[in-house]
Each structure stands twice: as structure tokens, then as C-alpha cells.
Design a protein around this nucleic acid. Structure first.
Lengths: 190, 190
DNA sequence: CTGTTTATGTGATGTAGGTCACTCCCCTAC
DNA sequence: GTAGGGGAGTGACCTACATCACATAAACAG
């Protein structure tokens, strides 16, 4: 079973679960399919779930008052996405999540995650490490933002995730880098 | 006992530990005193510990090739600081931590944290939630960076942490906002 | 197949913030 | 006391990137 194996491999990198424990863990996930362009979380929504990507590519993004989009994260297979601020604090979404390509995801509710963390120490361990890595990555990105110019950040991104180049249009890359699509376009032409 | 109470109050906000469990937890921390300007972690060091601030104010910062400083975080009482990338991945520090004012901290080693997380499920729960909050805060700051100008970010910072205004010199505030001290200085004068 | 939307390039011009250079002030160490 | 260093203000000039406007080509729906 494709999705189950992907999740198992991912989780057992930082936690050791028995076969039965993983089966129990997995039984709380719900498989969902989405089409390219479809919204998963929309600003203003109540947020109940986080999503583990099996195939395809998602983006989580913020739209400001001037309808300008800022991309917080792309999510490729084995990545997680949600509006974590809304999910953890039980508030309305301020972030959107949608599909850059057709996508299959596994959906886990906030309540089930907390229940599983309570019941299985190793699950709590797994989620601690997942967030640890996310935190360190967010700090790195923040530093790169302050320290490096657009060209450097663009090359850094493509070096880290070369697969994005073929999947994600340049205007979205620009929204991730926090520059206008025009500036990104001019980087290698003029 | 001052430091112990501060830590207890902080921890029990997101985890329930019995008196004995907390005593055991606390026994792994080591009290340390630092003077204004003293370094706690220097880039290139091996990083073994994270630090819980009891009194005073720390900063964690990165120095680039042009000797320009970027501040990742200020740390006031009940905040934690370290080079988490180095700490978690067991690599050399690329981040510095030092004291803006005289400071008292509680120091917890990486090994002890992992040991405690293993022995006490509630401790693992606490650290998961601590990082969750950190992750959400880092994402918020990233968004504010992309979306807002310096003046807005400065006012947002002072609204969130008014105590910084009296403790932290403006050139350090500028380094936190990712802007030159001259630009920050000009915000309200011209 | 065709009209419409989406992605991308490019010129002209505007602007926020950077850099450099100089000044003044206050604090602390001797 | 005074010398020296750090914090802070400010003028002159520079530059990276934004914005607007227009053009073109590919992708996509009817």
C-alpha cells in the first residue's frame, strides 16, 4: 500500500513504532484526492486537520490587503502542510493551502494528533522532531532573507529543491522569494 | 527559590508534572551567571546546551562575511535560546548568543533533554509545544518581513515587546528588523 | 478550433532603504 | 579629571527592487 508505506518510512526516521502501533497510528489518517488548483484550506475557515502529502505539490500562502500573495511553503511528497497557527490555537485560518498540481494527501485531525501523542509516547517524539526541523528551517530562511539578495536566494532554493523548477511556475517562485515576478524574470536575461 | 519557580510556572503552562517529576526535571539544569557583553555561544563552538533565561536579556545573532550582524532573537526571562541547528544536528555553531545585559540562565544539555524526554512523556510534550510556538512565531515573522515595511515592523515589535525599548539599543533593534541603523534612526525624525 | 486565461519577458520610471562620511553625546575606565 | 568607545542623528548619493504598461506565447475550456 503506497501511501501507508510512504508515511511509515517517513515516521520511522525519527520514531520507533511497532507494526501494531503504526497500524493504529495510520488508522487515524484519511486519504483525500485533490485536483490542480483546488483549495484545501481557505482564509477564514475553521482548521481541523494537517495534511501529509503523498503525491503532487501544495502551497501554503498568505494574501494581503493588496491581494498580493506570499508563499510560506511548498509541500512535496512526505512534507506536511496546514495553517499551524490556526490549528494549534483553534482560531480561523489566515493562511490558504491549495494544490499546484493534482495531489493525494493523508489528513490527520488536530484532536486525533493530540490523542495519538497522548497514547503513544513515540508519536509525540515524532511530532516534536518534525517541528524541531521545521523551526530550524524557518530560522534559516529568515536569515537568508535578511542576508542574501534575490539571485542568491533563488539559486539556493533550486539547489535545495531542484524538482520545484519543473513543477512550479516562476510567478509562484517569486512569491516564495518575496519579490515581484518581473524582478525574478530579469535575473538571468538582462 | 526564584529560578525554580520561574521554570515551574513556565513548564506547567503546557505540561502537567508532579512535584517529584518537576524536581527531577529541574535537577538537570545548571544555574549560570553572565555579565553584560559576555558570550554564551560563539560561532565555531561545539554546542551542548540550551539556555532558559531567568533574568536579563540575551540575543542570538549571525555575523556574515561583511561582519554585518543579523539578530535572530532576543531572549527575555522565560525565553529559551541556543543555536538549535547546531544543537539538534550536533554540528558546530554558526550562530552566536551573548548578553545584552547581566543575565542569569538555567542551562540544560542536549543529552539531558533527550534523556528527560524519554523518561517523562510530559517533558516531551512540553518541548513539543515549546517548539510549536516557536515555529508559528518564526513563520509570522517571515510573513511580516515579506509583507510589511520597516516602520510597521518596528511598531509591531515594540507593541509585542514594549520592554525591549528600554533595554535594547536601537542599533540592535535595527539588526533584528534587518535594516541599517541609519534607516531606523530616520523613521521618526525626517 | 477558438476565445480566454495564465505564464513570461521587457522597457520606463519611481522609491525604500543602503552606504559612507561626519558630528555630537554620554558613559566608563584609568 | 580626561581619553576613548559606543550609541545615535543626519546629509549626500547610490542601488536593488517595485510598479505600471504593454507584448507574446502557451495552456485550457467551451
Amino acid at each position: 500500500m503506497e501511501a501507508k508505506e510512504l508515511l511509515r518510512t517517513h515516521v520511522t526516521k525519527s520514531a520507533s513504532l511497532t507494526e501494531e502501533q503504526f497500524d493504529y497510528f495510520f488508522s487515524h489518517f484519511q486519504k483525500q484526492d485533490f485536483k490542480k488548483g483546488q483549495a484545501i484550506i481557505t482564509a477564514g475557515d475553521t482548521v481541523n486537520c494537517e495534511y501529509f502529502v503523498i503525491s503532487g505539490c501544495l502551497k501554503s500562502f498568505y494574501i494581503n490587503e493588496d491581494i498580493k500573495m506570499f508563499i510560506l511553503q511548498f509541500a512535496m511528497p512526505t512534507w506536511w502542510a496546514s495553517d499551524y497557527s490556526a490549528l494549534y490555537n483553534n482560531t480561523k485560518a489566515s493562511i490558504n493551502v491549495d494544490c499546484i498540481t493534482d495531489a493525494e494527501v493523508l489528513c490527520l485531525s488536530n484532536d486525533d494528533r493530540e490523542k495519538l501523542c497522548n497514547e503513544l509516547h513515540q508519536v509525540e517524539h515524532f511530532f516534536r522532531w518534525r517541528t524541531n526541523r521545521g523551526y530550524v528551517a524557518a530560522q534559516k530562511r529568515l536569515l537568508s532573507f535578511m542576508n542574501n539578495n534575490v539571485k542568491y536566494r533563488y539559486e539556493e532554493l533550486l539547489k535545495l529543491y531542484p524538482e520545484l523548477y519543473n513543477i512550479v511556475p516562476k510567478n509562484l517562485i517569486a512569491a516564495y522569494l518575496g519579490v515581484s515576478r518581473e524582478t525574478l524574470s530579469r535575473l538571468y536575461t538582462s
